[in-house]
Write a protein that binds this DNA or RNA. Structure first.
Length: 922
RNA sequence: GGGCGAAUAGCUCAGCCGGUCAGAGCGCCUGCCUUACACGCAGGAUGUCGGGGGUUCGAAUCCCUCUUCGCCCACCA
């Protein structure tokens, strides 16, 4: 790479399209993203490992803004730690996404007029496999476009042979521990996907429904009836009882008698069960064990029949134990059509007492949004309570923290009330459940290896038809991607436990909590010590970005228009911890302006800096005699030290300082927006606005001082690029490569994170603050009096009591003059004519003669107003200082600060009075 | 029905343990194409920090309450 010696070789904008891909390829060629197990201290190396496993996107997914955000944050952390000297590993990969992927392929089949049953299981799986192989994993390619520094040599896939082995091992181990069992109960069923769902997969949606009050006449006295309330009249065909509360006086005498079930025309008993809430509706509830989880429990308690009247597709018919319950006219109707018909019949028969509107939460399939049908079936479950205990303990003892902290309460609540996990799915796409049945002797075989015959009787065996919940492989992700169940695997040894898990809060239960439970159960350790939950992206109306609403932003669009760096900077700088980020899908230019502007600014700082510094070798800062440093040099070095400190503080400790999170470090760090702001401020408001401007003259003058300025300039910029690299890796690398003296093959991506500076520069830096104050004062005068830049202004700085300050101002007068386009001299000799006065800290006064420059009359009015306002404020301040209680109770430094302020204000008031006197003649 | 969070400049938000916090970015106003940058420079305006009450010498910051939005959880048929 060449080192351009003038800005003419650098275009005036950074061109991501022409640069980013090339830089990314070179990073990868240099092996910068590849972690080495042997270098981890856990494997005898000398580097602390820092590991993140990516939340594996669905294999068929394409990148959306949520991924853009999530992966940017991970990349910031990974790049930061890599630079900080850790053995940083970011494991990428994809999830086979059972239902989601199967649905995609089924849709393709549907377009051909076929169902999966038409093609058969084997062919369907083959087709899906081919589909995934062909088009899957696109998202991983897309991640490179935003700069994600994943270790692509370790790319994983939940359905790969290696990870499938982990899945089977996990299932068998849980089974052997008695934590996996087969249960016969009512589960959530999606009649469209034709599979069971876990509690988490059956999402509640508020729905405007109706509450139907239906009269069930007493069998032995049709003039009397019990009225039940139901939202789902179609299930009444499966009623086996009506229940009242045992203590409910109103119905006590009816318990044990029978009622006649309308429509079905059969008799069912009245039972007493505490499940019934006497206060709800009429206090009478119909019991339908096969179609309601609670009713199922009641049914079991009372040993009731469990007739199934709705089949797996949601069609009403006599499925099981339901002979004679479904009238012919209802047979074969969809459940919702059946509801209508039943209601009509009830109305016709005079059994419908009333219908009320009813707002309630109805479970829907999280994949296809179909209303879930509770269904009685045999499923595999994981007993979760024993797994939850250590996961709760982890948080209590500080092995784990969740940020922002408010999510910790959610986590605890969920774990404390955890329910068993239905892990079997009636799908074809996924890990086949490793259970075989022998029909000959009824033996159940759960095995790591595929059995060929029944171990007991030698008979033929057949494997369970179901597959595992896709999350059953996801929950092993931190383990399986690192080589588990091979506990000797180099990666597992070197990188497990991992460090930070970055995700949106939406999959806290689906995935994150379960990973923690798996970590403890399978290897006895939490898979990570920090869960970092970020917000989600919303549009300007506050709506969640989604495909269906069409309000999403395609990150690749953004990359194309403003570049990956601008995208990354915008989301990192714009997002508080755990706070949602609002972006306008209709105005990408505006939404990403902060990032775009900053990248351009940085690029231009690079242009002027490189252009002024040239390509000749530059001394390392350490080789510069400290006595040769100017005030400005000290100042920028001091500011750099502050910026580095702020960035480190904002990012926080990468891991618990004492092995466990404590009050001291639990709530610290991961404030990426603060980190971004600290770095931005240094580079823009300090380095560019002040230091670079101040150095231009020195560089032009040449000589020894120019060498010093070059050294400081290059050092400060180099350090700034390092600070910013995790956020905006491309432009910083492109600039860093052009710094003079850059060694071939060295990359910023592999460079060291800035070390804390010394405090050696602070004293001289303070002097430069006085220079800045003088410059600001003169700029303000120019602006206040509307003096155009072209108009030369003579300024006099009248020394104050501070002899040192006067010395500084005298020496720096040329610089102050250059930065303000004024002719500045320091003299006791204040001009006598009308002039503007600005007081500097330390007592010196900037005086600018105004004769011929302004309308004095207007100016006087303005000044008098200013004086009045100041006197008012000063009065209040003095009153405060006269307050006994304030002086005695407030901390000394506060009182001292107020006193100081009063002194300054008084001086300013006196100045202002003089000024008014001088300008306005008394 | 529980639990949690948010309400601060026109917009999106920072403001941790009460006193240099009334701030940033975008937008707006004024003046500048000052040979790095108009995706810029210099200067500037705008907020009784959702309402009410309380604690305190002092509250955007703590407590109570109300209002309005979110989110999560939940077997009230």
């Amino acid at each position: 790479m060449t080192n351009p010696s003038s800005t003419t070789e650098l275009p005036d904008r950074y061109d991501p399209a022409a640069t980013d891909a090339d830089l990314y390829a070179r990073w990868q060629q240099a092996g910068l993203f590849t972690a080495h197990a042997a270098r981890s201290v856990r494997a005898g190396g000398d580097r602390t490992p820092f590991t993140i496993v990516i939340p594996p996107p669905n294999v068929t997914a394409v990148l959306h803004m949520g991924h853009g955000l999530d992966n940017t944050l991970q990349d910031v952390l990974i790049r930061w730690r890599r630079m900080a000297g850790d053995e940083a590993l970011w494991v990428p990969g994809t999830d086979h996404a059972g239902i989601a992927t199967q649905n995609v392929v089924e849709k393709q089949l549907a377009a051909e007029g076929l169902t999966r049953f038409d093609v058969g299981r084997e062919a369907f799986v083959a087709r899906t496999t081919a589909f995934v192989a062909e088009t899957g994993g696109v998202i991983l390619e897309q991640l490179r476009a935003i700069g994600a520094s994943c270790d692509w040599t370790r790319t994983s896939y939940t359905l790969s042979p290696e990870l499938s082995r982990a899945v089977r091992e996990a299932f068998v181990r849980l089974y052997e521990a008695g934590l996996v069992y087969r249960g016969h109960r009512v589960i959530h069923w999606c009649p469209r996907c034709l599979t069971s769902l876990s509690d988490e997969e059956a999402e509640f949606h508020d729905t405007a429904g109706k509450l139907y009050h239906v009269a069930y006449p007493l069998a032995d006295d049709p003039t009397r009836s019990l009225t039940v309330a139901t939202t789902r009249p179609e299930t009444m065909l499966g009623d086996v009882a009506v229940a009242v509360h045992p203590d409910d006086e109103r119905y006590r005498e009816l318990v044990g008698r029978r009622v006649r079930l309308p429509v079905a025309g059969i008799e069912i008993p009245v039972i007493a069960d505490a499940y019934t809430d006497p206060a709800f509706g009429t206090g009478v509830v119909k019991i339908t064990p096969a179609h309601d989880a609670n009713d199922f429990e009641v049914g079991k308690r009372h040993d009731l029949l469990m007739p199934v009247v709705i089949d797996e597709t949601g069609v009403v018919r006599e499925v099981q134990d339901a002979a004679g319950r479904v009238p012919a006219e209802l047979q074969g109707l969809d459940r919702f059509a059946a509801r209508e018909r039943i209601v009509e019949r009830l109305r016709a028969e005079g059994r419908l007492v009333k219908v009320e509107p009813h707002q309630h939460a109805v479970r829907h399939c999280y994949r296809c949004d179909t209303v879930v049908e509770p269904r009685l079936s045999d499923q595999w479950f994981v007993r979760m309570e024993p797994l939850a205990r250590p996961a709760l303990q982890a948080l209590r003892e500080g092995a784990l923290r969740i940020r922002p902290e408010r999510h910790e309460a959610t986590y605890v609540h969920w774990l404390e009330n955890i329910r068993d996990w239905n892990i079997s799915r009636q799908l074809w796409w996924g890990h086949r459940i490793p259970v075989w049945y022998c029909d000959a002797c009824d033996e159940t075989i759960v095995s790591r290896e595929d059995p060929t015959a029944c171990a007991k009787c030698g008979g033929a065996v057949r494997q369970d038809e179901d597959v595992l919940d896709t999350w059953f492989s996801s929950w092993l992700w931190p383990l399986s991607t690192l080589g588990w169940p091979d506990t000797d695997a180099a990666d597992l040894q070197a990188f497990y436990p991992t460090d930070v898990l970055v995700s949106g809060p939406d999959i806290l239960f689906f995935w994150i909590s379960r990973m923690i439970m798996a970590g403890y159960f399978f290897v006895g350790e939490s898979p990570f010590h920090t869960v970092f939950l970020h917000g989600i992206t919303r549009d300007t109306q506050g709506r969640k970005m989604s495909k269906s609403l069409g309000n999403g932003i395609d990150p690749l669009d953004v990359v194309e228009r403003v570049g990956a760096d601008a995208l990354r900077y915008t989301v990192v700088a714009g997002m508080g911890l755990g706070v949602d980020i609002v972006l306008d899908p209709d105005d990408l230019e505006k939404s990403f302006a902060p990032g775009r502007n900053f990248v351009t600014k940085l690029w231009n700082i690079g242009r002027v800096l490189l252009g002024n510094v040239g390509s000749a070798p530059v001394r390392p800062l350490a080789g510069v005699d400290a006595r040769a440093l100017t005030r400005a040099d000290h100042w920028i070095l001091a500011r750099l030290a502050v910026a580095v400190g702020e960035c480190d503080a904002a990012l926080g400790p990468a891991r618990p300082l004492t092995g466990r999170w404590t009050e001291a470090d639990h709530h610290v760090g991961l404030r990426l927006n603060d980190y971004a702001e600290a770095a931005r401020r240094f580079v823009w408001n300090e380095l560019a606005d002040w230091y670079v401007e101040s150095a231009k003259g020195r560089l032009a003058d040449g000589g020894e001082d120019a060498e010093v300025a070059r050294a400081v300039l290059v050092h400060a910029f180099d350090q700034a690029l390092r600070l910013l690299h995790p956020i905006i890796p491309f432009v910083t690398e492109a600039l860093w490569q052009r710094l003079p003296g850059r060694a071939r093959g060295a990359y910023l991506a592999g460079a060291a994170w800035p070390a804390h500076g010394t405090t050696a520069h602070e004293a001289a830096a303070g002097e430069f603050e006085l220079v800045r104050a003088a410059v600001s004062a003169l700029r303000q005068v120019r602006s206040d009096y509307n003096i155009p830049p072209s108009r030369q202004v003579d300024a006099v700085i009248v020394p104050g009591d501070d002899a040192d300050g006067t010395g500084v101002l005298r020496e720096e007068a040329p610089l102050i003059g250059r930065l303000t386009r004024c002719e500045v001299r320091v003299s006791d000799d204040a001009p006598h004519e009308a002039a503007a006065h600005v007081l500097l800290p330390g007592g010196a006064t900037v005086v600018v003669p105004l004769a011929g420059l302004v309308d004095l009359e207007r100016e006087c009015a303005r000044l008098r107003g200013e004086l009045t306002e100041l006197e008012k404020q000063l009065g209040a301040l003095q009153q405060r200082l006269a307050n006994e209680r304030f002086v005695s109770k407030a901390p000394a430094h506060v009182v001292e600060g107020e006193r100081q302020k009063a002194v300054e204000w008084s001086a300013r008031r006196d100045q202002l009075r003089d000024k008014v006197g001088a300008l306005c003649g008394g």
